[in-house]
């Protein structure tokens, strides 16, 4: 029996699950408050641009987005299987492809800020 290569993705899934568990609810609160106009001063172009303009801010943003993407992608692969879809290889290409695309776009946009 050959050893599985799933650890590559599971490692990202586990790290991402931990990071999203800690930060995502608060992040969503921030965007929800912005959506409800509770935070007119802070969720602004100037403030966020300044945050994303320095390398530490870029690193934090990249880390959170990268791990959230790969966490969600791997769990989605399992979930699709749980809902009865047995085309696991195709599903893996699609979900990991989406995560890869998101990762690439994040790098491009961060470099433009």
């Amino acid at each position: 029996m050959a050893k599985s290569n799933k650890p590559i993705f599971w490692g990202l899934f586990a790290a991402g699950g931990t990071v999203t568990a800690f930060v995502t609810p608060a992040l969503v609160l921030v965007t929800l408050f912005a959506a409800m106009r509770f935070s007119p001063d802070l969720f602004t172009y100037q403030y966020l641009h300044a945050f994303a303009a320095n390398w530490l801010g870029k690193l934090v943003i990249f880390g959170i987005i990268l791990l959230s993407l790969w966490h969600a992608a791997h769990r989605l692969r399992v979930t699709v299987h749980d809902f009865g879809v047995r085309a696991d290889t195709l599903v893996a290409y699609v979900v990991y492809g989406l995560a890869g695309l998101g990762t690439l776009l994040t790098i491009i946009y961060l470099l433009r800020i």
Binding site: M1, A2, K3, S4, K6, W10, V78, D82
Partner: peptide
């Protein structure tokens, strides 16, 4: 043991 346990049909079928 890892030869069996770390295969796809081993621990990685667990969710």
């Amino acid at each position: 043991r890892q030869e069996v346990v770390a295969s796809n049909e081993g621990v990685w079928e667990c969710s």
